[in-house]
Amino acid sequence: MLLQIDNLTKSYAGPEGPTEVLRGVSLSLDAGETLALTGESGSGKSTLLHLVGGLDTADGGSIRLDGQEVTRLDDTGRAALRRGTVGVVFQQFNLIPSLSVAANISFQARLAGRFDQARADRLAEALGLTGQLAKYPEQLSGGQQQRVAIARTLAARPRLVLADEPTGNLDEATAAVVIEEMLALVHETGAALMMVTHSPALAARAGRRLHLRQGRLE
């Protein structure tokens, strides 16, 4: 089992006291498995992805990923987890503005020691980025930046891909290419994919679907 989450809880401070975002979430994910998380805005989907990816810390519960207890890692350990094990596709893209598109695509793979130029080239071609490689993020549209962020994650061949609305800024045809590339990574490398989506069509492509409602899985 690649990922095991047990009784995960998370609250955030608010003007009227703590707001519970996750209320005892438990799930498991095997290597090679794909999971779609659906739910209304504010149901805790993005928070769950951030906790699994070591981008935030839980109040309680356990996250065990590829043999590591994520909830016990310090900042350095969580950063190492994101370099070597987890790839996160953010809604905000988080591209490095001082790097070209080509350098952004290769960045995480180089950090992980898994850079493959042929793979980077294939991803750039598949995602329609071949003509944009010398440009910088500020010169791209939102949809193009999203495709660069996806290529960067997939180029590093992570053990687990966490994708937060990965096709939210893309047209239908490009969205279809993106999900095919993600599913191909799972098939080729035995990685797992957990994605948050509001798209019924995208959720239907996953092997399993779970619904979050008010911080609880259904």
Rank of each mutant, 00 (worst) to 15 (best):
Gln146Glu: 01
Ser98Met: 14
Pro158Val: 04
Pro18Asn: 08
Val186Asn: 04
Val177Lys: 15
Gln4Asp: 15
Leu202Trp: 13
His198Cys: 04
Ser26Thr: 07
Arg114Phe: 06
Leu51Gln: 02
Asp75Thr: 02
Ala163His: 05
Leu95Ser: 01
Ser199Pro: 02
Ser141His: 01
Arg157Gln: 00
Lys10Ala: 07
Arg209Tyr: 08
Glu33Ser: 06
Leu81Ser: 05
Ala58Gly: 06
Leu3Arg: 02
Ala31Phe: 07
Pro200Phe: 09
Leu51His: 05
Gly87Leu: 00
Thr189Gly: 01
Met195Glu: 09
Pro15Asp: 14
Gln146Met: 06
Leu217His: 11
Arg82Cys: 00
Phe90Leu: 02
Asp164Lys: 04
Gly39Phe: 05
Val88Ser: 12
Lys135Asn: 11
Ala151Ser: 14
Gln68Met: 14
Met194Ser: 03
Arg122His: 15
Glu218Val: 12
Gln108Asn: 06
Val21Pro: 00
Gly142Ser: 01
Gly87Phe: 01
Ala184Pro: 05
Gly84Tyr: 08
Ala102Lys: 03
Gly168Val: 11
Asn7Ser: 13
Gly215Trp: 00
Ile96Met: 07
Asn94Val: 09
Ser199Cys: 09
Leu48Pro: 13
Ile179Met: 15
Leu22Ile: 03
Gly42Ala: 13
Asp6Gln: 14
Ser199Tyr: 02
Leu81Asn: 07
Leu49Ser: 00
Gly67Asn: 02
Ser98Gly: 02
Thr34Gln: 02
Met182Ile: 03
Asp66Tyr: 10
Ala80Ser: 14
Ala124Lys: 03
Arg208Ile: 11
Leu154Gln: 00
Leu210Ala: 14
Arg119Gly: 03
Val178His: 05
Val161Ser: 13
Arg72Trp: 09
Ala203Thr: 14
Pro15Glu: 11
Asp116Tyr: 01
Glu69Asp: 12
Arg213Phe: 14
Thr76Asp: 10
Ala192Asn: 03
Thr71His: 13
Gln108Trp: 07
Gly61Arg: 05
Thr19Ser: 12
Asp121Glu: 11
Leu65Asp: 07
Ala201Asn: 13
Asp171Trp: 06
Ile179Phe: 15
Glu20Tyr: 13
Leu193Ala: 00
Leu55Pro: 13
Met182Arg: 01
Leu140Asp: 08
Leu133Trp: 08
Thr47Gly: 01
Gln139Ala: 12
Lys135Ala: 15
Val86Met: 00
Lys45Ser: 08
Val178Arg: 06
Glu138Ala: 15
Ser43Gly: 06
Gly87Arg: 03
Arg213Pro: 13
Ile105Phe: 08
Val196Ala: 05
Thr76Ser: 13
Ala191Asp: 00
